[in-house]
Design a protein around this nucleic acid. Structure first.
Lengths: 250, 250
DNA sequence: CGAGAATTTGATTTCCATCAACGCCTGTGG
DNA sequence: CCACAGGCGTTGATGGAAATCAAATTCTCG
């Protein structure tokens, strides 16, 4: 996926960059964050990092690759709640609560840094501003989940797909992994189906429809926006909703 | 709705009680929280407390009555994201971000305490543990939104309804506003429709189906569980997912 | 008592899931 | 080098769930 130096400096650190968007972190804060980010581990594609129902789980910060969080239903189906890209937390709720309420799985091979419950809570008491920053990051995640919920509740299959691809594109642009032309996307149609609450067959049909209408194409792991403005219009996508620019707390 | 003394003491305070479930608050912490909770305002049924797209909004803490948060779509439809009951935050994200990404409306007449952005961020810097506690509360809200999302994505209309009523019942029981028999519920079928991503007509049919199957009834503002176990089974409701008992941080 | 809102029921249509089959591509072992 | 197995993508046919349209009934409250 992305190329990063093996030894991360505090400058070049997805989490530091992300949190700095909200609070101005002191050098000491940055040090604490970077410390949490140090011990990286590799996980193969398909590995489960967090298990629903398990107690005392750690969280992770994703350094490279894609992951997804999902819930399993009794019928054997699953609902993907969100995809995570570099800089995102994996399983933050599973350390704030005693037992995890969702699963997290590696979509590609990934690099992630483990953060134990003890370390995180300790960091919060020693570095108060950090808790506020993480609250902000968690709220940003919640905003995305809310948008996803609206998508499932009130949009047709093709609008859902269009909106989803636009949102993903916007998120990836923020971390330098895409532009208004398109982005590399390792998701299968089965994953898209589980995220959008559709059947895989219908995902295929919807993608064809969007392609034939000249809006987006999704082929061999790449999303290409063919007519960005028309797509935004079709999906009634709010361009602004991810722009939370500039530290609120300085 | 609930009967509470006009002058709230720090003992009897929905927010203090809620946050205490996660962190052991010092007397000083309690004082700060209670301070935020002091200036109560009344709002009539149907009033909008938070406006999507507006800048520099305050948040509120709900003292009595019901509210709902929702998003408007271009087609004129709306999706209700969640309902709020006493002790819940209203529009927390709208103070952490510059501009609010959702609306909040009073479902009944309500009492709520305003919390300005400045006061909240100041409280976080002065009272570090409070930020962690609020992070926990926000994560709990997110868990509910996630459950709602799964509901919309992967369950049939009647399962959705069953699950929704069970979840609402569980939440209300936590604040002493219901039991396993049922609860008072001021929601119209239109509100249910907007929350569950259904048409109001279909909500009515689904309620009839559940009633005729002897599972739940919903009549004249009251939900009655007729066969709780069967309903839990039908909705594949996870009884445990709201039980986040005991302070994690003491 | 009357008016407007909320609920209820019926008829029809649309969207999407499901079932089934086939083609394509990749990797693997004979 | 070829055969072939398995995953993924593609397309068609059919049925079911829920939206929509339309109208009647009940509830609420001034």
């Amino acid at each position: 996926m992305t190329e990063r130096p093996a030894t991360p400096s505090s400058q070049d650190n997805p989490l530091v960059r992300k949190l700095s968007a909200f609070v101005r972190l002191s050098p000491n804060d940055v040090e604490v964050v970077a410390g949490m980010f140090r011990r990286r581990r590799n996980f193969a594609m398909g590995v489960e990092l967090i298990h629903q129902g398990q107690v005392g789980q750690s969280a992770f910060v994703l350094a490279s690759g894609w992951a997804c969080s999902y819930k399993l239903l009794s019928g054997g189906t699953r609902q993907i709640v969100d995809f995570q890209v570099p800089g995102d937390f994996l399983g933050l709720r599973s350390v704030l609560f005693r037992t995890s309420d969702h699963n997290v799985e590696a979509v590609t091979t990934i690099q992630a840094s483990e953060v134990t419950q003890r370390d995180l809570l300790a960091a919060f008491t020693e570095t108060p501003r950090l808790a506020t920053a993480v609250l902000w990051a968690a709220s940003r995640d919640e905003a995305m989940v809310v948008e996803h919920l609206v998508n499932l509740g009130r949009r047709s299959a093709s609008e859902r797909m269009a909106h989803f691809l636009l949102e993903l594109g916007a998120r990836l642009r923020l971390v330098g992994m895409g532009n208004s032309t398109g982005f590399a996307c390792p998701l299968s149609q089965y994953l898209l189906a589980d995220a959008l609450g559709l059947s895989a067959v219908h995902v295929n049909r919807v993608l064809r429809e969007l392609r034939e209408d000249g809006l987006v194409t999704f082929r061999r792991g790449r999303v290409e926006f063919r007519n960005y403005d028309a797509l935004v219009d079709f999906a009634s996508f709010d361009r602004a909703y991810l722009d939370h620019d500039g530290p609120l707390l300085s």
